[in-house]
Computed example of a mutant assay.
Amino acid sequence: MRICFFLLDHGKYKAVIPSLLSAVEHELAINTDNNDIGQRLIRRLQYSLEEGNNGGFRYAVGISVASLLANGLFMRHSFNEERVPLINRNWILHGRDDPSKWIRIDVYKLITVISALKLIQKD
């Protein structure tokens, strides 16, 4: 994470954003104890949260993060459509997004998602 903050401080978003997206998927895989990718990981997270739903803190945070991922960051978005305001995992990892449009706040959003996923990890 130190390297990500170094890159952030030096405005190297082209390096830090794809790395953080990989970290988001890594944290999802840890939370779901699964090797799926993308939307399947989010569905597994939602299922595990619903399965253990006791209306507690983990559920409230987890379901919010899962919704943000499913309806934003990991949302299916055709490469032929206009770019959406929230960065999109598929567009970035498949080289379809314009890195010149990535900004500091995008990095902070990804760090926040990673932090939330770490927060809800089962012990």
Rank of each mutant, 00 (worst) to 15 (best):
G11I: 09
H10T: 13
S64A: 12
K122C: 11
N31H: 11
H94W: 07
N71V: 11
L93T: 08
N88R: 00
G52I: 08
L68Y: 10
F6Q: 13
S100A: 03
I30E: 04
Q121D: 14
V65W: 10
H10S: 11
I111A: 09
R83E: 01
D36L: 02
F79C: 00
R43I: 07
S48R: 03
S48M: 02
K101W: 01
D123N: 14
E25Q: 15
L69S: 02
P85A: 06
I87K: 03
S48Y: 02
S19Q: 15
K14M: 00
C4E: 15
I63K: 08
S78K: 03
W91I: 01
I92N: 07
P85E: 00
H77Y: 04
N80Q: 10
Q46I: 08
R89N: 09
I42F: 07
Y108M: 14
V65H: 01
R96E: 11
N80P: 09
L49I: 05
N88Q: 03
N34P: 08
W102M: 07
L41S: 07
S100V: 05
E81A: 01
G11V: 02
V61C: 02
R89S: 10
L68R: 09
N53H: 01
L69Q: 14
W91A: 00
S67C: 03
A66L: 00
L68F: 09
R58S: 11
H94T: 00
R89M: 06
L68E: 15
L7D: 10
V84G: 08
L93N: 06
H94E: 09
D97N: 04
D106Y: 08
F5K: 14
A66P: 04
G55F: 14
M1F: 08
L73I: 15
E25F: 13
N80H: 08
L8I: 06
A23H: 14
D98E: 06
S22R: 12
